[in-house]
Every structure is written in C-alpha cells, then in structure tokens.
Amino acid sequence: MGFSLFNYWVVILLMMAGFYTVIASGNLVKKIVGLNIFQTSVFIMYISIGKVFGGSVPILAANTDLYSNPLPHVLILTAIVVGVATTSLALSLAIRIREAYGTVEENDILEISRREDDEE
C-alpha cells in the first residue's frame, strides 16, 4: 500500500510547492512560475492515473497488447496548451504592469494603488 500511493504524495508535495509560490511570492513573474509548477504537477498526477504497470506507450505495436491509458495523455496535452496560453497572457500583463507602475512587486503596487485611492 505504501509504495502504491507514494507517487501521488510526491506529486502533492510538488503541487503544494508551486501553490505556495503562487500565493506567498510577492513578485508577479515568480507567481507565474509558481503557477506553472503547480499546473505541471497536476499534469503529472493525471499522467500517473493513466499509467499501467507493464503497459507501453499507447501507440499500436506488434509486440504488446497492454497499453497505458491514452485518455489522460489527451487531456493533459490540452491542459498544457491551456497552461501556456495562460502563462503568455500573464506575462504580457506583467510587462504592462511594469510599464504602468515601474515595478512588478505586489507590495509596491499595492502601495501605489492605495495612494492613488487616497488621492481620489
């Protein structure tokens, strides 16, 4: 039992490292990196679901009839693409924020916004 779930636990550890980076980091770009790590670990979780011991790559081959599950692979292909789409959007937002505020540190931005709100 222990080993069979060990895989998931590692994945969870990774996920949480990414998640932590997202919510704890003050730098917007690093947040994005964290988000990517978070998502990548979720992808690993999905792919683990699809693994069959003794199975092979799900491409028809003559010498085997035990394949790993292709469906999670498909889902993750899609999810990876979604991930890169999000990342690129987030990055361009970060660039614009840098241009508008001169910083990509969350605290500095909050400070500036607060001052702006007070002025109004």
């Binding site: 997202v22 917007l28 999000t86 987030a90 937002l93 970060a94 924020i97 508008a100 931005i109 916004s113």
Partner: peptide, 11 residues
Amino acid sequence: RALTASFQYLI
C-alpha cells in the same frame, strides 16, 4: 489599475 485587477483575477 485595470492591469493589476486583471492580473489578480488571472492568478
């Protein structure tokens, strides 16, 4: 501030 709002929402 639309930018930061959008970023926050994105995250």
